[in-house]
Design a protein around this nucleic acid. Structure first.
Length: 478
DNA sequence: ATGTAC
Protein backbone atom coordinates (compact mmCIF):
# COMPACT_ATOMS: atom_id res chain seq x y z
CA UNK A 1 0.00 0.00 0.00
CA UNK A 2 2.88 2.36 0.71
CA UNK A 3 5.05 1.54 -2.33
CA UNK A 4 6.80 4.63 -3.71
CA UNK A 5 5.95 6.66 -0.61
CA UNK A 6 8.62 7.92 1.80
CA UNK A 7 8.28 7.82 5.57
CA UNK A 8 9.47 11.20 6.84
CA UNK A 9 8.33 11.04 10.47
CA UNK A 10 6.66 8.75 13.00
CA UNK A 11 3.25 9.49 11.53
CA UNK A 12 4.16 11.51 8.46
CA UNK A 13 4.59 10.32 4.88
CA UNK A 14 5.71 12.01 1.68
CA UNK A 15 4.45 11.26 -1.83
CA UNK A 16 7.41 12.36 -3.96
CA UNK A 17 7.17 14.40 -7.14
CA UNK A 18 6.90 11.86 -9.95
CA UNK A 19 4.45 9.55 -8.15
CA UNK A 20 2.12 10.72 -10.93
CA UNK A 21 3.26 12.87 -13.89
CA UNK A 22 3.26 16.68 -13.68
CA UNK A 23 3.26 17.06 -9.89
CA UNK A 24 4.32 20.59 -8.96
CA UNK A 25 4.86 19.87 -5.26
CA UNK A 26 5.16 16.72 -3.15
CA UNK A 27 2.22 15.20 -1.30
CA UNK A 28 2.20 14.71 2.45
CA UNK A 29 -0.10 12.76 4.69
CA UNK A 30 -0.39 11.72 8.31
CA UNK A 31 -1.06 8.07 9.09
CA UNK A 32 -0.27 5.30 11.57
CA UNK A 33 0.71 1.74 10.58
CA UNK A 34 -2.72 0.56 11.74
CA UNK A 35 -4.52 3.01 9.48
CA UNK A 36 -2.13 2.23 6.61
CA UNK A 37 -3.76 -1.20 6.37
CA UNK A 38 -6.93 0.42 5.03
CA UNK A 39 -5.23 3.09 2.92
CA UNK A 40 -6.58 3.05 -0.62
CA UNK A 41 -4.01 3.38 -3.41
CA UNK A 42 -6.63 5.40 -5.32
CA UNK A 43 -6.80 7.97 -2.53
CA UNK A 44 -3.01 8.40 -2.59
CA UNK A 45 -3.16 8.85 -6.37
CA UNK A 46 -5.83 11.50 -5.85
CA UNK A 47 -3.57 13.26 -3.34
CA UNK A 48 -0.79 13.21 -5.95
CA UNK A 49 -3.18 14.41 -8.69
CA UNK A 50 -4.05 17.48 -6.61
CA UNK A 51 -0.33 18.30 -6.58
CA UNK A 52 -0.51 18.87 -10.36
CA UNK A 53 -2.97 21.77 -10.05
CA UNK A 54 -1.75 25.28 -10.95
CA UNK A 55 -0.63 27.49 -8.08
CA UNK A 56 -0.61 24.80 -5.38
CA UNK A 57 1.63 25.93 -2.51
CA UNK A 58 4.10 23.74 -0.59
CA UNK A 59 2.30 20.36 -0.48
CA UNK A 60 -0.83 18.49 -1.34
CA UNK A 61 -1.90 17.32 2.12
CA UNK A 62 -4.12 14.66 3.65
CA UNK A 63 -5.22 13.91 7.18
CA UNK A 64 -5.32 10.36 8.67
CA UNK A 65 -8.96 9.93 7.71
CA UNK A 66 -7.93 10.05 4.03
CA UNK A 67 -10.12 8.08 1.68
CA UNK A 68 -11.18 8.06 -1.95
CA UNK A 69 -13.46 10.95 -2.95
CA UNK A 70 -14.61 12.96 -5.97
CA UNK A 71 -11.38 14.29 -7.54
CA UNK A 72 -9.65 15.27 -4.31
CA UNK A 73 -9.37 12.68 -1.52
CA UNK A 74 -11.62 13.15 1.49
CA UNK A 75 -9.36 14.28 4.29
CA UNK A 76 -7.52 16.44 1.75
CA UNK A 77 -6.12 19.93 2.33
CA UNK A 78 -4.54 22.13 -0.35
CA UNK A 79 -3.68 25.84 -0.52
CA UNK A 80 -3.44 27.83 -3.75
CA UNK A 81 -1.71 31.14 -4.35
CA UNK A 82 -3.69 34.20 -5.34
CA UNK A 83 -2.12 34.77 -8.76
CA UNK A 84 -1.56 31.35 -10.34
CA UNK A 85 -3.90 29.35 -8.12
CA UNK A 86 -7.23 27.72 -8.81
CA UNK A 87 -10.45 26.92 -6.96
CA UNK A 88 -12.06 23.50 -7.38
CA UNK A 89 -15.43 22.12 -6.20
CA UNK A 90 -13.74 18.71 -5.93
CA UNK A 91 -11.57 20.20 -3.20
CA UNK A 92 -14.62 21.20 -1.18
CA UNK A 93 -17.03 18.32 -1.73
CA UNK A 94 -20.67 18.16 -2.74
CA UNK A 95 -21.94 18.85 0.77
CA UNK A 96 -20.59 22.38 1.04
CA UNK A 97 -19.90 23.32 4.67
CA UNK A 98 -20.78 19.99 6.07
CA UNK A 99 -19.80 20.61 9.68
CA UNK A 100 -20.34 19.96 13.35
CA UNK A 101 -21.38 21.91 16.42
CA UNK A 102 -21.21 20.90 20.06
CA UNK A 103 -23.51 22.21 22.78
CA UNK A 104 -23.29 21.64 26.55
CA UNK A 105 -26.28 21.21 28.87
CA UNK A 106 -26.42 21.52 32.69
CA UNK A 107 -27.60 17.90 32.90
CA UNK A 108 -25.80 14.75 34.05
CA UNK A 109 -26.32 11.25 32.71
CA UNK A 110 -28.37 10.48 35.85
CA UNK A 111 -30.71 13.39 35.07
CA UNK A 112 -31.55 11.72 31.75
CA UNK A 113 -31.88 8.20 33.12
CA UNK A 114 -35.45 7.07 32.52
CA UNK A 115 -36.29 9.82 30.06
CA UNK A 116 -33.60 9.14 27.48
CA UNK A 117 -35.92 7.35 25.08
CA UNK A 118 -38.50 10.10 25.42
CA UNK A 119 -35.82 12.73 24.78
CA UNK A 120 -34.69 11.00 21.60
CA UNK A 121 -38.29 10.65 20.39
CA UNK A 122 -38.95 14.35 21.02
CA UNK A 123 -35.76 15.33 19.22
CA UNK A 124 -36.72 13.08 16.31
CA UNK A 125 -40.12 14.84 16.17
CA UNK A 126 -38.56 18.32 16.40
CA UNK A 127 -35.82 17.95 13.81
CA UNK A 128 -36.84 16.71 10.35
CA UNK A 129 -34.51 13.95 9.14
CA UNK A 130 -34.07 11.88 5.99
CA UNK A 131 -33.08 12.53 2.39
CA UNK A 132 -36.06 14.62 1.31
CA UNK A 133 -36.85 16.08 4.73
CA UNK A 134 -38.89 19.30 4.71
CA UNK A 135 -38.65 22.03 7.31
CA UNK A 136 -41.42 23.45 9.49
CA UNK A 137 -39.94 26.91 8.84
CA UNK A 138 -41.62 28.98 6.17
CA UNK A 139 -38.75 30.49 4.21
CA UNK A 140 -39.42 32.78 1.25
CA UNK A 141 -37.11 33.17 -1.67
CA UNK A 142 -36.19 36.59 -0.28
CA UNK A 143 -35.44 35.03 3.11
CA UNK A 144 -33.21 32.53 1.36
CA UNK A 145 -31.14 35.36 -0.16
CA UNK A 146 -30.65 36.76 3.35
CA UNK A 147 -29.72 33.31 4.71
CA UNK A 148 -27.09 32.92 1.99
CA UNK A 149 -25.49 36.25 2.90
CA UNK A 150 -25.92 36.32 6.70
CA UNK A 151 -25.60 32.62 7.64
CA UNK A 152 -26.27 31.80 11.31
CA UNK A 153 -26.97 35.48 12.04
CA UNK A 154 -30.14 35.22 9.95
CA UNK A 155 -31.50 32.66 12.41
CA UNK A 156 -30.35 34.56 15.50
CA UNK A 157 -32.05 37.75 14.27
CA UNK A 158 -35.30 35.76 14.12
CA UNK A 159 -34.99 34.60 17.70
CA UNK A 160 -33.53 31.18 16.84
CA UNK A 161 -30.46 31.60 19.03
CA UNK A 162 -28.39 34.26 20.76
CA UNK A 163 -25.61 36.69 19.84
CA UNK A 164 -23.30 34.57 22.02
CA UNK A 165 -23.87 31.65 19.64
CA UNK A 166 -22.45 33.61 16.72
CA UNK A 167 -19.15 34.35 18.44
CA UNK A 168 -18.75 30.60 18.91
CA UNK A 169 -19.01 29.71 15.25
CA UNK A 170 -16.10 29.53 12.82
CA UNK A 171 -16.18 32.90 11.05
CA UNK A 172 -19.07 33.89 13.33
CA UNK A 173 -21.34 31.64 11.30
CA UNK A 174 -20.89 33.26 7.89
CA UNK A 175 -18.25 33.78 5.23
CA UNK A 176 -17.83 37.00 3.24
CA UNK A 177 -18.26 37.12 -0.52
CA UNK A 178 -21.68 35.48 -0.97
CA UNK A 179 -23.05 35.92 -4.48
CA UNK A 180 -26.72 34.90 -4.55
CA UNK A 181 -26.68 35.40 -8.35
CA UNK A 182 -24.29 32.43 -8.53
CA UNK A 183 -26.99 30.17 -7.03
CA UNK A 184 -29.35 28.74 -9.66
CA UNK A 185 -33.12 28.79 -9.40
CA UNK A 186 -32.99 25.01 -9.04
CA UNK A 187 -30.60 25.24 -6.09
CA UNK A 188 -32.87 27.83 -4.45
CA UNK A 189 -35.88 25.61 -5.03
CA UNK A 190 -34.14 22.77 -3.22
CA UNK A 191 -32.94 25.04 -0.40
CA UNK A 192 -36.19 26.80 0.46
CA UNK A 193 -38.01 23.86 2.10
CA UNK A 194 -34.92 22.33 3.75
CA UNK A 195 -33.61 24.97 6.15
CA UNK A 196 -33.52 23.38 9.60
CA UNK A 197 -33.38 19.77 8.42
CA UNK A 198 -30.73 17.21 9.26
CA UNK A 199 -30.54 15.16 6.05
CA UNK A 200 -29.30 11.60 5.84
CA UNK A 201 -26.16 9.49 5.56
CA UNK A 202 -23.64 10.17 8.30
CA UNK A 203 -25.50 13.28 9.47
CA UNK A 204 -26.90 13.08 12.97
CA UNK A 205 -28.01 14.78 16.12
CA UNK A 206 -26.49 12.96 19.07
CA UNK A 207 -26.90 13.26 22.81
CA UNK A 208 -23.58 12.57 24.51
CA UNK A 209 -21.83 12.60 27.85
CA UNK A 210 -18.34 13.98 28.45
CA UNK A 211 -16.80 10.73 29.62
CA UNK A 212 -13.17 11.69 29.86
CA UNK A 213 -11.46 15.05 30.27
CA UNK A 214 -7.94 14.84 28.88
CA UNK A 215 -6.93 18.52 29.11
CA UNK A 216 -8.57 20.11 32.19
CA UNK A 217 -7.37 23.65 31.46
CA UNK A 218 -8.71 23.66 27.91
CA UNK A 219 -11.92 21.94 29.05
CA UNK A 220 -12.48 24.67 31.62
CA UNK A 221 -11.93 27.35 28.98
CA UNK A 222 -14.34 25.63 26.60
CA UNK A 223 -16.88 25.18 29.42
CA UNK A 224 -17.13 21.40 29.54
CA UNK A 225 -16.79 19.12 32.58
CA UNK A 226 -16.69 15.38 33.16
CA UNK A 227 -20.12 13.80 33.39
CA UNK A 228 -21.82 16.66 31.60
CA UNK A 229 -24.49 15.85 29.01
CA UNK A 230 -23.93 17.53 25.63
CA UNK A 231 -25.42 17.31 22.19
CA UNK A 232 -23.77 17.43 18.78
CA UNK A 233 -25.21 18.40 15.40
CA UNK A 234 -23.54 17.08 12.24
CA UNK A 235 -25.01 18.25 8.93
CA UNK A 236 -24.46 20.51 5.95
CA UNK A 237 -26.11 22.51 3.19
CA UNK A 238 -28.55 19.80 2.04
CA UNK A 239 -29.86 19.89 -1.52
CA UNK A 240 -28.86 23.52 -2.00
CA UNK A 241 -25.14 22.89 -1.55
CA UNK A 242 -25.31 19.76 -3.66
CA UNK A 243 -26.97 21.69 -6.49
CA UNK A 244 -24.46 24.57 -6.27
CA UNK A 245 -21.63 22.05 -6.58
CA UNK A 246 -23.29 20.25 -9.50
CA UNK A 247 -24.09 23.48 -11.38
CA UNK A 248 -20.61 24.96 -11.06
CA UNK A 249 -18.82 21.70 -11.83
CA UNK A 250 -20.43 21.86 -15.24
CA UNK A 251 -19.24 25.42 -15.95
CA UNK A 252 -15.80 24.71 -14.52
CA UNK A 253 -15.38 21.65 -16.76
CA UNK A 254 -15.67 24.13 -19.63
CA UNK A 255 -13.33 26.59 -17.98
CA UNK A 256 -10.53 24.00 -17.77
CA UNK A 257 -10.07 24.06 -21.56
CA UNK A 258 -10.59 27.82 -21.77
CA UNK A 259 -7.69 28.49 -19.38
CA UNK A 260 -5.49 25.74 -20.80
CA UNK A 261 -5.36 23.74 -17.57
CA UNK A 262 -4.12 20.15 -17.96
CA UNK A 263 -5.80 17.76 -15.56
CA UNK A 264 -4.99 14.11 -14.78
CA UNK A 265 -8.66 13.61 -13.80
CA UNK A 266 -11.65 15.58 -15.04
CA UNK A 267 -13.10 15.43 -11.53
CA UNK A 268 -10.48 18.04 -10.61
CA UNK A 269 -12.37 20.65 -12.70
CA UNK A 270 -11.27 24.08 -11.55
CA UNK A 271 -10.68 27.64 -12.70
CA UNK A 272 -8.21 30.36 -11.75
CA UNK A 273 -9.20 32.10 -8.52
CA UNK A 274 -9.15 35.34 -10.46
CA UNK A 275 -11.48 34.30 -13.30
CA UNK A 276 -15.23 34.84 -13.78
CA UNK A 277 -15.88 31.11 -13.45
CA UNK A 278 -13.70 30.73 -10.35
CA UNK A 279 -15.23 33.78 -8.70
CA UNK A 280 -18.75 32.56 -9.51
CA UNK A 281 -18.10 29.18 -7.90
CA UNK A 282 -16.63 30.86 -4.83
CA UNK A 283 -19.65 33.19 -4.53
CA UNK A 284 -22.09 30.28 -4.86
CA UNK A 285 -20.08 28.10 -2.49
CA UNK A 286 -20.17 30.86 0.14
CA UNK A 287 -23.97 31.03 -0.20
CA UNK A 288 -24.22 27.30 0.46
CA UNK A 289 -21.72 27.52 3.35
CA UNK A 290 -23.76 30.28 4.97
CA UNK A 291 -26.95 28.27 4.45
CA UNK A 292 -25.29 25.37 6.29
CA UNK A 293 -24.40 27.59 9.27
CA UNK A 294 -28.00 28.82 9.43
CA UNK A 295 -29.16 25.21 9.14
CA UNK A 296 -27.11 24.03 12.13
CA UNK A 297 -28.23 27.11 14.08
CA UNK A 298 -31.93 26.31 13.48
CA UNK A 299 -31.45 22.65 14.40
CA UNK A 300 -29.62 23.60 17.61
CA UNK A 301 -32.45 25.97 18.49
CA UNK A 302 -35.09 23.26 18.06
CA UNK A 303 -33.05 20.81 20.14
CA UNK A 304 -32.57 23.40 22.91
CA UNK A 305 -36.33 23.88 23.09
CA UNK A 306 -36.82 20.13 23.48
CA UNK A 307 -34.28 19.92 26.33
CA UNK A 308 -35.71 23.03 28.03
CA UNK A 309 -39.25 21.72 27.88
CA UNK A 310 -38.47 18.18 28.95
CA UNK A 311 -36.04 18.92 31.78
CA UNK A 312 -37.19 22.37 32.91
CA UNK A 313 -33.82 23.99 32.21
CA UNK A 314 -33.20 27.45 30.75
CA UNK A 315 -32.42 27.94 27.10
CA UNK A 316 -29.27 29.88 28.06
CA UNK A 317 -27.98 26.98 30.16
CA UNK A 318 -27.24 25.19 26.91
CA UNK A 319 -24.05 26.75 25.62
CA UNK A 320 -22.61 26.34 22.17
CA UNK A 321 -18.92 25.42 22.52
CA UNK A 322 -18.16 25.85 18.83
CA UNK A 323 -19.26 25.17 15.24
CA UNK A 324 -16.72 23.98 12.66
CA UNK A 325 -16.90 23.58 8.89
CA UNK A 326 -15.16 20.56 7.38
CA UNK A 327 -15.98 21.00 3.65
CA UNK A 328 -15.04 24.47 2.44
CA UNK A 329 -12.50 26.68 0.64
CA UNK A 330 -11.41 29.88 2.39
CA UNK A 331 -9.08 32.79 1.86
CA UNK A 332 -6.67 32.88 4.80
CA UNK A 333 -3.30 34.37 5.66
CA UNK A 334 -0.59 31.85 6.38
CA UNK A 335 3.17 31.83 6.76
CA UNK A 336 4.82 30.89 3.46
CA UNK A 337 8.61 30.81 3.78
CA UNK A 338 8.50 33.38 6.57
CA UNK A 339 6.11 35.74 4.79
CA UNK A 340 2.46 36.17 5.78
CA UNK A 341 0.67 35.37 2.53
CA UNK A 342 -2.96 35.12 1.46
CA UNK A 343 -3.85 31.70 0.03
CA UNK A 344 -7.07 29.85 -0.79
CA UNK A 345 -7.18 26.83 1.52
CA UNK A 346 -9.39 23.95 0.40
CA UNK A 347 -10.47 21.64 3.22
CA UNK A 348 -12.43 18.60 2.12
CA UNK A 349 -13.23 16.39 5.06
CA UNK A 350 -10.73 18.37 7.09
CA UNK A 351 -11.27 20.74 10.00
CA UNK A 352 -9.71 24.13 10.60
CA UNK A 353 -7.50 23.81 13.69
CA UNK A 354 -6.11 27.29 14.29
CA UNK A 355 -3.73 27.46 17.21
CA UNK A 356 -3.32 29.83 20.16
CA UNK A 357 -3.36 33.49 19.17
CA UNK A 358 -4.29 32.86 15.54
CA UNK A 359 -6.55 35.39 13.87
CA UNK A 360 -10.12 34.09 13.74
CA UNK A 361 -10.03 32.23 17.06
CA UNK A 362 -12.67 33.67 19.45
CA UNK A 363 -10.96 35.88 22.06
CA UNK A 364 -12.26 33.72 24.94
CA UNK A 365 -10.40 30.75 23.40
CA UNK A 366 -7.33 32.65 22.16
CA UNK A 367 -4.94 31.24 24.76
CA UNK A 368 -5.90 27.63 23.95
CA UNK A 369 -6.57 27.65 20.22
CA UNK A 370 -9.88 27.04 18.50
CA UNK A 371 -12.11 24.12 19.48
CA UNK A 372 -11.99 21.24 17.00
CA UNK A 373 -14.95 18.87 16.96
CA UNK A 374 -14.52 15.35 15.58
CA UNK A 375 -17.68 13.27 15.38
CA UNK A 376 -17.44 9.52 15.82
CA UNK A 377 -19.44 7.03 13.82
CA UNK A 378 -22.69 5.80 15.32
CA UNK A 379 -22.17 4.27 18.73
CA UNK A 380 -18.51 5.34 19.03
CA UNK A 381 -16.81 8.21 20.84
CA UNK A 382 -16.63 11.74 19.48
CA UNK A 383 -13.82 14.09 20.48
CA UNK A 384 -13.29 17.71 21.38
CA UNK A 385 -9.77 18.94 20.62
CA UNK A 386 -8.04 22.28 20.22
CA UNK A 387 -5.96 23.71 17.37
CA UNK A 388 -2.19 24.06 17.56
CA UNK A 389 0.77 26.07 16.33
CA UNK A 390 2.13 22.91 14.67
CA UNK A 391 -1.03 22.72 12.54
CA UNK A 392 -0.46 26.34 11.48
CA UNK A 393 3.05 25.37 10.35
CA UNK A 394 2.39 21.99 8.75
CA UNK A 395 -1.19 21.83 7.47
CA UNK A 396 -2.45 25.40 6.95
CA UNK A 397 -4.07 25.13 10.37
CA UNK A 398 -5.96 21.93 9.61
CA UNK A 399 -6.69 18.55 11.16
CA UNK A 400 -8.90 15.51 10.49
CA UNK A 401 -12.72 15.56 10.35
CA UNK A 402 -13.70 12.13 11.57
CA UNK A 403 -13.62 8.49 10.82
CA UNK A 404 -13.26 7.74 7.13
CA UNK A 405 -15.50 5.16 5.51
CA UNK A 406 -13.86 1.78 4.77
CA UNK A 407 -16.89 -0.10 3.41
CA UNK A 408 -19.19 1.17 0.65
CA UNK A 409 -22.85 1.77 1.37
CA UNK A 410 -23.88 -1.18 -0.80
CA UNK A 411 -21.42 -3.52 0.93
CA UNK A 412 -22.53 -2.25 4.32
CA UNK A 413 -26.14 -3.10 3.50
CA UNK A 414 -25.10 -6.64 2.61
CA UNK A 415 -22.92 -7.19 5.65
CA UNK A 416 -24.81 -5.41 8.42
CA UNK A 417 -28.36 -5.91 9.62
CA UNK A 418 -29.80 -2.63 10.85
CA UNK A 419 -32.20 -4.23 13.28
CA UNK A 420 -29.46 -6.21 15.01
CA UNK A 421 -27.30 -3.11 15.15
CA UNK A 422 -30.10 -1.08 16.75
CA UNK A 423 -30.67 -3.81 19.33
CA UNK A 424 -26.96 -4.16 20.07
CA UNK A 425 -26.61 -0.40 20.61
CA UNK A 426 -29.73 -0.45 22.83
CA UNK A 427 -27.94 -3.11 24.87
CA UNK A 428 -25.07 -0.65 25.33
CA UNK A 429 -27.56 1.97 26.50
CA UNK A 430 -27.52 3.92 23.23
CA UNK A 431 -30.98 4.80 21.94
CA UNK A 432 -31.08 5.11 18.15
CA UNK A 433 -33.98 6.61 16.21
CA UNK A 434 -34.01 6.64 12.39
CA UNK A 435 -36.50 6.24 9.57
CA UNK A 436 -35.26 2.82 8.60
CA UNK A 437 -32.99 0.02 9.75
CA UNK A 438 -31.41 0.02 6.28
CA UNK A 439 -30.23 3.58 6.86
CA UNK A 440 -28.65 2.41 10.09
CA UNK A 441 -26.83 -0.48 8.43
CA UNK A 442 -25.11 1.92 6.04
CA UNK A 443 -23.77 3.89 8.99
CA UNK A 444 -22.69 0.99 11.20
CA UNK A 445 -19.49 1.65 13.17
CA UNK A 446 -17.88 -1.33 11.41
CA UNK A 447 -17.97 0.47 8.04
CA UNK A 448 -15.78 3.29 9.38
CA UNK A 449 -12.15 3.55 10.35
CA UNK A 450 -11.87 3.69 14.14
CA UNK A 451 -12.25 7.37 15.07
CA UNK A 452 -10.09 6.99 18.17
CA UNK A 453 -7.14 5.91 15.99
CA UNK A 454 -7.64 8.85 13.60
CA UNK A 455 -7.79 11.23 16.56
CA UNK A 456 -4.76 9.60 18.19
CA UNK A 457 -2.73 10.26 15.04
CA UNK A 458 -3.60 13.96 14.82
CA UNK A 459 -2.98 14.32 18.55
CA UNK A 460 0.43 12.64 18.42
CA UNK A 461 1.38 14.39 15.18
CA UNK A 462 0.55 17.64 17.01
CA UNK A 463 -2.07 18.83 14.50
CA UNK A 464 -4.60 19.22 17.33
CA UNK A 465 -4.73 18.11 20.94
CA UNK A 466 -7.45 16.10 22.66
CA UNK A 467 -9.48 17.99 25.25
CA UNK A 468 -12.34 15.58 25.95
CA UNK A 469 -13.87 12.32 24.84
CA UNK A 470 -17.64 12.16 24.45
CA UNK A 471 -19.71 8.96 24.51
CA UNK A 472 -23.08 8.62 22.80
CA UNK A 473 -26.26 8.19 24.83
CA UNK A 474 -28.78 8.55 22.04
CA UNK A 475 -28.84 9.53 18.40
CA UNK A 476 -31.29 10.60 15.72
CA UNK A 477 -30.45 9.90 12.09
CA UNK A 478 -31.98 10.17 8.61
C1' DA B 1 -23.48 13.80 0.70
C1' DT B 2 -27.83 13.89 -2.80
C1' DG B 3 -35.40 14.70 -5.09
C1' DT B 4 -29.26 7.77 -3.98
C1' DA B 5 -29.85 8.11 -12.41
C1' DC B 6 -29.53 12.13 -17.57
Amino acid sequence: MLTGINKIGDLEWEVPIGYVPDMRVPGRFFLSRTLAETLEEGAVRQLANVATLPGIVKHSLAMPDIHWGYGFPIGGVAAFDMTEGVISPGGVGFDINCGVRLITTPLTEADLARRKRELIERLFDAVPTGVGAKSALRVSNKDLSAVMVDGARWAVERGLGTEADLVRCEGEGAMPGADPDAVSAKARQRGVPQLGTLGAGNHFLEVQVAKEIVDPEAAKTFGIAEGQVCFMVHCGSRGLGHQVATDHLRTLEGAVAKYGIRLPDRQLACAPLDSPEGRAYYGGMVCAANYAWANRQVIMHEARKVFAHLFGIDYDEMQLIYDVAHNVAKFERHDVDGVSTEVCVHRKGATRAFGPGAEGVPSEYAAIGQPVIIPGSMGTSSYLLHGTTAAMQKTWGSTCHGAGRVLSRSKAKKEVRGKELRERLAGEGIVVRAHSDTALAEEAPAVYKPSQEVVRVVHEAGLSHIVARLEPLGVIKG
